[in-house]
Every structure is written in structure tokens, then in C-alpha cells.
Amino acid sequence: MKKVINLVTHMEAGGAQGAAIRMSKEMRNRGIDAETWFIYKKSDTYTDEEKVEVIYKSAPTNIYHALKIVSILLKKFKEVKPDGVISYTHYASTLGHIASFMAGVKNRVATMRNPAWSYPRLAKLLNKYMGGKNYYTKIIAVSETVKESCNSYSQKYKDNIVVVYNGVPARISALTKEAARKKFNFNTGSSKLLINLGRLHPQKNQQLLIKMMPYLPGYRLAIAGQGELFQDLSKLINDLNVADRVHLLGEIKPNDVPDFLRCGDVFLFSSIFEAFGFAIFEAAYNGLPIIASNIPSNVEVLTDGGNKAGIIVPDMEVASWVSAVKSLEDPALYQSYKDAIEKKSKSFDFDSMVKAYTHYSTVNI
């Protein structure tokens, strides 16, 4: 039986983490002995999942910790002898594939899940160097936007990149909207509910969504996620006197995400950069039209020729976002965007993603 390790930097309820867990599960369904390893743990999100392991006790803060992690991974790779290692985040790619290369793992796949320019400086330098040598047998970019961010890299690096879009399995809530709102204690009355899902991090730009709310008195906003900006966003909510209409839920369990999305009327995706927005299509499967920021990855996944599967807001001005939200008060426009994103979501096929990842992680054996 072939064996594959899906390696992620840290455990939390993030897109890369969920992708690794789903990939391991589906690989096992297809006869591959697949495990998910996290270098360290930020939260207990996936501790109850099958074949999950945490490698190190805490986040690395210095070179000694990094070398220790490489040493542990090297020892484990030699013991387990996987046919392939797939990394899902930049430190998993760099530290993980130094170890996998030294251990003689034949298939060393690095996935790029954000544009190269967004990487921390050290991770960016290591990734650029390792991709130009033989540390990675294949580099998977999750969108053309990510691939294009490496245009200045060496020819060897660019020749080794392939685009494999993130496939999103259709996780659809079995609840009605009313039952879902009851589950999360949303007493919205006649108000419409705007939904956002993501880490509370500057990249996700949730402060923009909160700043809209004084101008949208007939709406509520619910944000699910944890992160470093929790206190700042809480203060902003209080300063704007919208605490009765804005809800910070913290991290929710992955299995509860479809029910949370079913609560909403519109999904807001305000990131200042992304590689591929998993949450867009999870929202689409649960019946929500999309309003998204004008960044290359969103344009890539929400357009098909001249057709748009969501509202792409031209800038990050509060007034522009308020206008976009209000435009969906038109029932015909609301339904048209809802239908368009549902149709578009079918083009991001999970089966194709699994086949590609399986191929690249087992081909050299």
C-alpha cells in the first residue's frame, strides 16, 4: 500500500488545514495509507480526526527550534518511509522538505496556497532556493494568480510548477435557515444576516465589514474565526455602537461550518490577498450569493469570460461595500448571483484535485 504524509505547519481551523485533512481522508478512501501531520498546534480543531499527529510542542521561535523540527521530521520520515510528502503551508514546505529530501522520500510536493510575495522573508528566500534546486519534485500552485507570483523565479522553479485548483467537496447543511439560526442563537428578526468566515487577521480585512454596519441598519453581521485581531475588532464594534448587530463567534468546529453558512443571506469575502477562497464555494453550496474584494484570485474564480459569478467590489471603500450589499436587495439580482456561483462552484472539482495530488505524491516509485 502506498503511503503519503500531508504536512501542515500548525493545527487550526484554516483553509490549508482543512484541505490536508480532506485530502488524507479521500486518499484513504482510495486505498492509500494517508496521514496528516501538524508541526505544532494552535488549537485542538483536528485532534479527534483519524491518523492525525502533532510533531512539536510549540511554535518555533528561533533557529534551534527550527533545526529541532527538521531533526524530528527526518527521524520520523526514515521510520515511516512514505512514498510522498505533500506540504500545505510555507514552513511545512521549507522545514518539511529539507527533512523529506534528507530522508530520501521520492515524491516531495510543495503546495503554494498564497502568492509568493506574501510569504515571510525567510520562508520566501528558502522556498525560492529550494524550488530552484531538487528539494521539491513538484510545486502545486492553487491558482494561476499564485503561479504568476513566481514569474521572477528561476526557470527550473517555473518549469516545476503546475496549477491544480482547490477542489471543494459539497458540504451542504441539512438544516433550514431558521433551524441553523436557532442553533447559533441568531435572533435576527426581520434583519438580513451577512456572513464572513476566516481567521481574524489583517489579510482577511474584517474591520472593513464592521465599518459598514452603521450604514446598514437593517442588517446583522456574523464573523466566525479566531485570531490575533479579536480584541481590536471587539473594540471597533463597541466604538461604532454596533455590538447589538455584529457577532464575533470565535472558532467553530469544521463540521459546523455548513450550518453556520446556512444562517446567512449574503457571504462577504473582504481579503486583501488570497490564493483561492475555499469559503466562497462552501458558501455557494449553502445557497449564498458572494460579495468579494477586487483581488486577482477572486477575479479568477468568480469570472468566466465576461460573466461574473459574484459581485466584485472595485475598491476597499466602505461606501462601495455598502452599495454592493444594498444592490442585492433586488430579488432578481440576488437570485441571479446565487444561481451563477452555484454553477461556477461545480467547475472546482474535488475528484480532479485528489487525482492530481495522488499522482504527484506517488509517481516516482
Score class of each variant (00 low, 15 high):
Glu228Phe: 09
Ile86Met: 12
Ala180Thr: 02
Asn241Glu: 10
Thr89Val: 13
Asp256Val: 07
Val146Gln: 10
Val85Gln: 06
Thr45Leu: 05
Val266Ile: 14
Ala324Glu: 08
Ala141Gln: 11
Asp244Trp: 07
Met213Gln: 08
Phe186Cys: 05
Leu249Pro: 03
Ile98His: 05
Ala292Gln: 07
Leu248Asn: 03
Glu282Ala: 11
Gln226Thr: 01
Thr61Arg: 15
Gly15Lys: 13
Val354Trp: 09
Glu178Thr: 13
Leu248Gly: 01
Glu79Ala: 14
Leu197Ile: 10
Asp304Trp: 00
Arg113Met: 02
Ala356Gln: 14
Val54Arg: 09
Glu49Ile: 04
Val318Tyr: 06
Ala92Arg: 11
Glu53Gln: 14
Tyr334Thr: 03
Gly14His: 10
Gly104Asp: 10
Lys25Asp: 14
Ser336Phe: 05
Lys308Gln: 04
Leu229Ser: 03
Thr111Val: 01
Lys133Met: 07
Lys68Ile: 01
Asn364Val: 06
Leu236His: 04
Tyr157Pro: 00
Asn255Cys: 12
Asn205Ile: 09
Leu261Asn: 02
Lys182Gln: 15
Pro82Thr: 12
Lys3Trp: 00
Trp117Ile: 00
Arg245Thr: 00
Lys124Trp: 00
Trp37Ala: 04
Ile195Asp: 03
Gly250Glu: 12
Val242Phe: 07
Lys355Gln: 15
Phe273Pro: 00
Pro314Ala: 12
Pro120Glu: 13
Pro331Asn: 09
Phe350His: 10
Ser234Lys: 14
Leu233Ile: 05
Phe101Gly: 01
Ile86His: 06
Lys182Asn: 15
Asp265Ile: 00
Ala340Pro: 00
Phe260Asp: 02
Leu194Asn: 01
Thr145Ala: 07
Asn238Ala: 15
Gly218Tyr: 05
Ala123Lys: 09
Met11Pro: 06
Leu193Ser: 04
Glu50His: 13
Lys344Pro: 01
